[in-house]
Structures are given as C-alpha cells and as structure tokens.
C-alpha cells in the first residue's frame, strides 16, 4: 500500500496509523488506513471530497472511535485516546470551518486554549506570548471573537492551538475562505513551526500550493492511504496531477469547488 517504502522508515515517525478502521454509525469511512507521519515535518493529506481526510483527523484525535487497528504517537499506543489525553500527549487539532467561540472575547478564546495546561500559573505568560506573536490579536483582545475577519479568526484558532506548545498539530483546511494573502500568512506560520520541530499534519483542498510548502504528501482515497511520499514526488506524480492537482481532467474539475 505504501508506494515508496524505502524513503519511509517509520523510525522517525511521530505518528503511526496501522490498519485503522472507523466511521459514523454503521458507515465505514476509514477502511484500513496505514500511514507514518514524520517528526518535525509538514505532511499534507490530499484526496477527493469524501475520501475520509477529516474523518482521519477526528479519529486520530479521539472524536471518533477506532474500530480496529492502532494509532501510535511517540512510541506509545494512543488508540481511542480522548481529546483531553491527546492534548496531554502534545497534540492539538484545528478542525475544518469556524471554530472560535463567537460570543466570547478574543482573549477568553485564547484562554480556553489553555484548559489542558498542566501548570495553570503559566497561562497568563503564554497568552501574552501569543499577543506578542500576533499583534492583531492583542489589538482586538477585548472584542468579541465573532467580530474578527475570517482570516483573523483562523489566526486566533492557530494561536489558541499554539498556546499548549504542541509537538503535533492537526490542521484541517485552514485556507478555506481566506484571502490569498491570509493563506500565505497561515502557511508561513506552519512552515515556521515545522522548522522549530513541530510536526504538522495538514489537509488542504488547494493541494498544489500546500504540497509546494510541504515535506511529505499523503494521498487518501476511499478511506485508504494510496500514496505516501515526499511532497515533491507527489507533485510530479502523473496520476496525482491528473486527479487532484487541477490538471484539467474532468474528475478534478468536479472535485474542486465544493469542500
């Protein structure tokens, strides 16, 4: 199943999925997903709509039960951990769509990112760090988060996730609805984080642009990882280009607009 096994030693993988099966109710979506996510790198998951990309993230993070198979992080088995346990392991999840608490202030949204912090006394300093890093959030600290622009809201979500100083970030389609400039900003934050050793697992509809800044790519189709390789190889893969990178083929055109 893994196309390029020799470029992949699971030794430097932070996160390992092995034959993971999960879904909603009686519906099976992840149908034996196996993948190794490299430490300190950006891995972008691509695949057609409904392939199970978001389902994969929800399953990893404990929002959906793993029916069979195992998930390992940092050598520890974490299959069916709760979101809280995942946070304690050093993982954070930024789901698809709008995930801020619109009626709470920007500052209180950030503060909620620190619920899982083991040492609560450090919370104030960490919020302060985020304000320094994202000055716009300091400017709007006392505004209701719902009044921020879409891009600012995404920044807030990223900042809220960073508050825990995670070693693994699952980010599901952060660029949706953002201006090109804002997409650039979010992507450059992710690149910067990866440079500092954070492992980023990303889902992007805008596959080409995302792969260009990624180290690795993972093609998910019908709940299975079809291709796992370097981002560069995937970008140059004719099959992938045809199907997912907007090569002008019919399936790509059909898959592109919706999300």
């Amino acid at each position: 199943m893994t196309a390029n096994a020799n470029t992949h030693q699971s030794g430097d993988a932070l996160l390992l999925l092995k034959d993971v099966v999960s879904g909603y109710g009686k519906m099976t979506i992840l149908n034996g997903t196996t993948a190794a996510i490299r430490r300190g790198a950006i891995t972008t998951v691509i695949g057609p709509n409904g392939a199970g990309k978001s389902t994969m993230f929800k399953t990893i993070f404990g929002l959906l039960p793993v029916r069979t198979g195992t998930i390992t992080m940092d050598g520890k088995e974490i299959t069916n951990s709760s979101p809280r346990q995942m946070l304690d392991m050093g993982a954070v999840f930024i789901p698809q769509g709008r995930n801020i608490f619109a009626e709470l202030t920007v500052k209180h949204n950030l503060e909620l990112g620190g619920v899982a912090l083991s040492d609560q006394s450090g919370l104030g300093d960490r919020i302060e760090d985020m304000f320094t890093r994202f000055p716009i959030l300091r400017e709007k600290a006392n505004a209701q988060a719902g009044t921020l622009s879409g891009g600012q809201q995404k920044l807030l979500e990223v900042a809220r996730g960073l508050l825990l100083n995670p070693k693994l970030m699952l980010v599901d389609e952060p660029s949706i609805g953002l201006s090109p400039l804002m997409v650039q900003e979010v992507f450059s934050i992710l690149i910067d984080l990866a440079k500092k050793g954070v492992t980023i697992l990303l889902i992007e509809q805008n596959a080409k642009q995302a792969l260009q800044m990624s180290d690795y790519g993972l093609v998910l189709e019908q709940g299975q990882a079809r291709i796992e390789d370097t981002a560069k190889n995937i970008l140059n893969d004719a099959r992938v280009a045809q199907l997912f990178l907007g090569g002008g083929m019919a399936p790509a055109a059909a898959a592109a607009p919706a999300h």
Binding site: F61, P83, R84
Partner: peptide, 13 residues
Amino acid sequence: ATAQNPTVARILG
C-alpha cells in the same frame, strides 16, 4: 464555550 460549540470545547480539553 460548551454551550456555543461542544465539539470545539472538547477538542480544547
């Protein structure tokens, strides 16, 4: 937070 979006609240712990 739980009232506004329980899933996100859970994700944050």
